[in-house]
Design a protein around this nucleic acid. Sequence first.
DNA 1: AGCATATAGGTGCGTATACACGTATACCCT
DNA 2: AGGGTATACGTGTATACGCACCTATATGCT
Lengths: 145, 145
Amino acid sequence: MTDLLQVVQECGFLRLREDGRVVTRVYDRFTQASGLKPTQFSLLVAASLIDRANVNQLAEIMAMERTTLTRNLRPLEKKGLIKVMAGEDRRTRLVIVTDAGRNAVKRALPLWKEAQGYMAKSLGAARWCMLREALDVTTRVKMPR
Amino acid sequence: MTDLLQVVQECGFLRLREDGRVVTRVYDRFTQASGLKPTQFSLLVAASLIDRANVNQLAEIMAMERTTLTRNLRPLEKKGLIKVMAGEDRRTRLVIVTDAGRNAVKRALPLWKEAQGYMAKSLGAARWCMLREALDVTTRVKMPR
DNA sequence: AGCATATAGGTGCGTATACACGTATACCCT
DNA sequence: AGGGTATACGTGTATACGCACCTATATGCT
């Protein structure tokens, strides 16, 4: 019983997932007018920054399973925001952000900023900053073994 | 372009989801010998603590959409770790942890502790603690409007 | 050249997540 | 008693996530 309490009080995974759900809903509320889900927005931004990235590179940057990325690209492709085309190496597939994609990012940016502002206001600037710093380090945790 | 850099550097949502993916993989690696995914483990623990909870209560505790919880209960039910039964109020459905469920938690607990230890070791005790504190506050952020 | 291996990527399956919408039961007020 | 509302929950649909497994192309070694 004491052990179980310890889990709900101290589990890093549990907290991270809970916050993921909470914060995702917040960002989703703000960005929804853009037609982009937060996941799609951040993926599109990453793809814009490394234009003509291949699937592996993008997955690496996003700390995402390659196969997950492949599928996450689908909704963006369906909306015409990106195109996936063969590169010079016949194995690689390049992710190209279309003009529509760039416009979508431009439209969503102010909404994203509102979301950021809301988080900062809710937590207080100091805690908001600390949170992001703590999360920053954690991203670089390596798999065991 | 500067704006895009700002997104990948400062977006709380992005960091949270990335870390969610990274940390989930770590915990999954450790708990996988128990046959429980981290999500299932933490849900089972929560259900054990508030035994005979109804769906709404459990969803509230987990900061999870009610409908998500309903579906997340399914794999646990299939494995015989919980039973969902009607309560006195004919509308409510109670989540009952079975003996098999309690045993599964017992078996998984040491694996969970290893995962916690690995995280603490990877980040350093101080940063690990700070991270969990920061996440703790964030869970209580309310929806806008 | 020819085969082994490494690299790039996709599919099948199962789980996790949430919104919109629908159903059934309880409660309350006249 | 009867009708309106509130409460408790499920389903349909779409996205997000990752492991196991598979295919195709490139590369390197003999």
